[in-house]
Amino acid sequence: MTGTMYGVGLGPGAPDLVTLRSARLIGAAQVIAYPTLAGAPSFARSIVADLIPPGATEIAIEIPMVRERGPAQAAYDAGAARIAEELAQGRDVVTLCEGDPFLYGSFMYLHARLAPRFRVEIVPGVTSMTAASAAARRPLAARDEVFTVLPAPLSDDALTAGIAGADSVAIMKLGRHLPKVRRVLDALGLTDRSIYVERATLGSETVCPLAEAPEKAPYFSMILVLKGNDPWL
């Protein structure tokens, strides 16, 4: 018998937004795997550090943050191989993932490598966009409104088309792309309908109109573009 790999969504960062199912699996885990930036502590692990059992085997998968895909592909190959060793010996592996495993989640790359050979279960997590919406106290979509999710690294033209075709938009992965996104929203006349949210649910959470946002943004930030209003008001 081989073990099961669990892809566990941890939510946007606040430990009390981890689901009961995720907490139960982590608390009983023999083996915990998680992504981390090379040479840095793992944000995913920090969210649930108090839940990890003493003596659990930990597999840290160091992901280089470079534009080329090759180094990250090699890191996921190596991480999947280490997880496969544990699964082959009959041990379950709980793999941590910030946010939701299948929404821009790092877990999907391990799933692609291991699901053909091993049993895998996925536990969804609270998404950063719903956390940002709650922090901003603004609904993302109502009734027949179209809600679109766009990654900030897209080109100006792709961002413009995606924003123009939706009633509300979450623009994720801002980081160094914030100036470009500002430029696109200015050109569309939507700056005054855009809300900047940084590190939603964490102690350093920032929520403000885009016009008042800082010049630089971390990776864990997004812009909500809300064109419509609640139709019942």
Rank of each mutant, 00 (worst) to 15 (best):
T4E: 00
M5F: 07
G7H: 05
L10G: 09
G11P: 06
D16E: 14
V18S: 05
L20M: 10
L20Y: 09
S22D: 08
S22A: 15
G27F: 02
Q30R: 15
Q30F: 01
V31W: 02
I32L: 10
P35E: 07
A38L: 09
A38Y: 01
P41T: 11
S42F: 10
S46G: 13
I47T: 13
D50M: 05
L51H: 08
I52A: 09
G55K: 08
A56C: 11
I63G: 04
I63V: 15
M65Y: 02
R69M: 09
R69N: 12
R69W: 01
A72F: 02
A72G: 14
A74Y: 00
A74C: 06
D77Q: 11
R82L: 11
R82K: 13
E85C: 08
E86W: 01
Q89N: 14
Q89P: 06
G90Q: 04
R91A: 09
V94K: 00
V94I: 05
T95N: 15
C97K: 09
E98H: 05
L103N: 08
L103A: 08
Y104Q: 01
Y104C: 03
G105K: 09
M108N: 11
A112N: 14
A112M: 08
R113H: 06
L114N: 02
E121G: 00
G125L: 08
T127G: 03
T130W: 00
S133Y: 01
L140R: 11
L140T: 15
A142Q: 10
E145N: 12
V146C: 09
L150H: 04
P151Y: 06
D156A: 13
L159K: 13
V169L: 03
L174S: 15
R176H: 15
R176M: 10
K180Q: 11
R182D: 00
V184N: 09
A187P: 09
I195A: 03
Y196L: 05
A200N: 04
G203S: 07
C208F: 07
C208D: 01
P209F: 07
L210M: 08
A213E: 06
E215T: 15
A217Y: 02
Y219T: 14
Y219H: 07
M222V: 15
L224V: 15
L224A: 10
V225K: 05
